[in-house]
């Protein structure tokens, strides 16, 4: 009965959504209204105004930098939330409970050979996003995934030796600290809070600051993803 009511409601919703969608221009058609407004400006002027050829990056790191700041804060919030819900156990106690089966030798071997490559690729993505495909979040996620596969392959006690807890505690906030410094640098160079120094005054500053922000976001996302995994591991 309840299932029937749900399905009926969903069917009703489907009709409503479909009837609205047929009035939209078909995807890919050139008459989509947005083609002639903001994004057109980005595509035509972006490379010149910002200096990066990857326009998605120009939007993320320039025109809508404040959203990227919020986005980095959202993952940090997720970490704070996970630590609030599942506070770290006291690991100095009687060795913890290792009820999980030890990883097999084959897994360990494969992980040991692939993780270095994954780490290099992730780092490359973090640092190369301004010119080609890539970006800090994507690279950070891949670095985080490397930490997770290392934990699964050789056990998280070994994996955590690469990222000791007191280092992780600072890395988690790396993106936020970078943004704090960035916000503070602006007024010093006469550009105002949360703004890049003008290109005329410091021609090299913009590019380096972008790289700095990307590195901060990449390091923070990687550390956060790894820590979220470690705090949930072996709980349930």
């Amino acid at each position: 009965m309840r299932r029937l009511a749900t399905l009926l409601l969903l069917a009703l919703l489907a009709v409503m959504l479909l009837s609205a969608v047929v009035e939209l221009p078909a995807p890919g058609s050139p008459e989509m209204p947005f083609r002639s407004h903001v994004s057109q400006h980005y595509l035509e002027q972006g490379a010149e105004e910002v200096g990066t050829t990857n326009i998605v990056k120009a939007v993320l790191l320039e025109y809508r930098l404040f959203d990227t700041f919020g986005e980095a804060a959202v993952i940090f919030t997720a970490l704070a939330g996970v630590l609030a819900v599942l506070p770290p156990r006291d690991r100095s106690g009687s060795g913890g409970h290792h009820d999980r089966a030890a990883p097999g030798q084959v897994t360990g071997y494969v992980v040991g050979r692939t993780v270095p490559a994954i780490v290099i690729f992730g780092t490359y993505l973090v640092l190369s996003g301004h010119a080609g495909p890539g970006g800090a979040f994507q690279g950070g996620v891949i670095l985080g995934a490397a930490a997770i596969s290392l934990s699964l392959g050789v056990g998280s006690d070994h994996a955590r030796e690469f990222l000791p807890e007191h280092v992780a505690a600072w890395l988690h906030g790396a993106a936020m600290v970078v943004f704090l410094l960035f916000a503070a640098i602006g007024p010093l160079t006469g550009a105002g809070v949360f703004a890049y120094p003008s290109t005329a005054a410091l021609p090299w500053a913009r590019e380096w600051l972008m790289l700095f922000i990307e590195a901060g976001i990449g390091a923070a996302s990687a550390a956060i993803i790894a820590s979220v995994f470690w705090s949930m591991e072996g709980r349930a």
């Binding site: 083609r35 903001v38 994004s39 595509l43 998605v56 120009a58 993320l60 959203d67 919020g70 986005e71």
Partner: peptide, 13 residues
């Protein structure tokens, strides 16, 4: 033509 960069930004966030 290029794909729209703003939609991609929205989805990334």
């Amino acid at each position: 033509p290029y794909h729209d960069p703003v939609s991609q930004t929205i989805v990334l966030v």
